[in-house]
Design a protein around this nucleic acid. Structure first.
Length: 265
DNA sequence: AATATTGTTCAGCA
DNA sequence: GTGCTGAACAATAT
């Protein structure tokens, strides 16, 4: 689930639930998911402190503490957040639990343990160390910047969209949606796209992500002309009803409409 | 039982 | 250095 729109939705959820409360206790149930800090140190950094704000870069969520440092969460494929009081409402695969004095808990739940928990003294340095590209929703990520980055690339458009070192935030599913909305074939080489098509591609990125965030990443509420709900067996193009093509592009299962996304220039 | 799955990372190769 | 492929990671659902 978690690509940029989901992570942004988690970030807003974090803001609504978990800021400005003293952290009473920290429980780390899956220490193997921690990177760059020991479980003991993480507990020390959190306990007795409180979260004051959050941030996001691509698929990374930063939760800033009153110390100025950040708890950093990456959700892998199956991670999510849940704030709950009643133990009966606890999710099933809690990997990190943060307990507050009001008896509520914030759980980082992650079925497959592909999510990551880390800590950053300096958010900018963390992003630089991870070599992340610009967050695609950042205000200063404009068409000129996009062109500049993309003009040095040669791979398939889909691989470029999904590469976090190039652009941060887009994964397999939203790459497909962005390509469908811009009517570009996922295997098209980026260097073979005209400037007009690059513009069309760029112009689809933010609207798709923003529209999804506005719906709290609830796909059922997406516009009818979106492809996301039609992935899967025998999915049909929401525009022309043709059966969607399913093939592997850039190593990932890809859906596209053969009529609306042709390979020719 | 084989296959698939939204994530990243890394080795191997052209 | 670039880009692609496949595997690994982990745990489940179909």
């Amino acid at each position: 689930m978690p690509e940029l729109p989901e992570v942004e939705t988690f970030r807003r959820y974090f803001d609504r639930t978990s800021l400005h409360q003293k952290i009473k206790e920290v429980r780390l149930y899956s220490p193997e998911m921690i990177r760059g800090i020991s479980p003991k140190k993480l507990r020390e950094e959190l306990r007795g402190h409180e979260f004051v704000s959050t941030g996001r870069h691509g698929k990374y969520l930063f939760a800033q503490l009153d110390s100025g440092k950040d708890l950093v969460l990456h959700f892998g494929m199956t991670g999510h957040l849940k704030y709950f009081n009643d133990p009966k409402k606890s999710p099933s695969y809690v990997r990190l639990l943060i307990q507050f004095p009001n008896d509520y808990n914030l759980a980082f739940d992650c079925l497959r343990k592909l999510g990551r928990i880390s800590f950053a003294n300096d958010r900018a340095k963390f992003i630089a160390d991870k070599k992340l590209g610009p967050d695609v929703l950042a205000d200063d990520f404009d068409f000129n910047k996009f062109l500049e980055i993309v003009s040095q690339k040669k791979g398939s458009v889909k691989s470029i969209l999904m590469n976090q070192h190039t652009l941060a935030g887009i994964g397999n599913l939203y790459a497909d949606e962005i390509l469908f909305q811009s009517r570009i074939h996922p295997s098209q080489r980026i260097n073979e796209l005209s400037k007009a098509k690059k513009k069309r591609l760029f112009d689809a990125i933010k609207p798709v992500l923003v529209a999804t965030i506005e719906r709290k990443a609830d796909w059922a509420k997406l516009p009818k002309n979106y492809l996301l709900n039609d992935r899967g067996k025998e999915g049909k193009c929401p525009l022309c009803g043709r059966t969607l093509m399913r093939e592997t592009v850039a190593g990932r299962t890809t859906y596209y409409c053969p009529r609306h996304q042709s390979l020719k220039r």
